[in-house]
Nucleic acid binder design. Structure first.
Lengths: 133, 133
DNA sequence: GCACAACTTTACGTTAACGTAAACTTCATA
DNA sequence: TATGAAGTTTACGTTAACGTAAAGTTGTGC
């Protein structure tokens, strides 16, 4: 299944190569309900939407999101937000995520500063080693 | 072991309460070599340095660092950086971490924008629901 | 002196996120 | 036609980060 089926669909190995993950992982994400590719016979066929979802899953992982959390974020887009109570619960979920992420921003900036500092120290020591040759 | 031993030391439950984690976790971090409290008899006594380390471990977790990764970051501070080759390997490790974190910054900002957008949509729908009462 | 709260060690259990192996089907190509 | 590459399902194995339970020790209040 090396050749593309159409310009907008992908095989499982296409995606596994593009994102550098195993086909096992991709099938697992489907198992967990995060992707739902169509089939041709029993072969999975991924479209653009599936691809975007995969990308979002991986971004979520980089941010330390569990697959379940990423799944809930997906639902936020899919649910038809009819009732006001539903809308409010969604909004509180969003606001929770936002404060989590803002905390992460602070964390990252703090660590970046520390790493810069550490890097500078290393450079100083290195250059003093060079001079004393 | 409710009372403080001195103004600068803590019992395991002091720390578990302060950081809202179980004593099991704290002992586990010790097991993994991330903390090394002193002992009075067989009872663990944590000092200010241990406390700071705990705080750093939890920050690492928020950033999706494994305990092993956090441990390596600790080592960066502890190692006496004698040889130039060691220094260079440390610096490449630092630069790896830095680019990871910068990627995370981008990720977070992207998600924050999406969440803001989603939030705005919810608010719009909510207010239109209010008006049609 | 004894209950009891907080500490300890030892060790097996659990969950998420896959890895890995086996046994099978499809399809292109030599 | 057969061989090999890519796909499939089923199912057991693995690792990190703890949870949980058992069984014992230690200090403190009544």
């Amino acid at each position: 299944m090396t050749k593309k089926i159409s310009s907008l669909s992908y095989s499982i190995s296409d995606l596994s190569k593009e994102f550098d993950i195993t086909t096992r992982s991709i099938r697992f994400y489907e198992d967990q309900g995060l992707i739902a590719p169509s089939r041709k016979g029993q072969t999975r066929i991924y479209n653009q939407r599936d691809r975007v979802r995969l990308k979002l899953i991986l971004r979520g992982k980089r941010l330390g999101f569990s697959l379940a959390e990423t799944g809930r974020l997906f639902e936020l887009y899919d649910v038809d937000k009819t009732s006001a109570t539903q809308l409010n619960s969604i909004m509180s979920l969003i606001s929770d995520k936002k404060s989590d992420l803002k905390q992460q921003l602070d964390d990252i900036n703090a660590v970046l500063i520390e790493l810069d500092d550490l890097e500078k120290n290393c450079k100083d020591i290195l250059s003093s080693l060079e001079n004393n040759k």
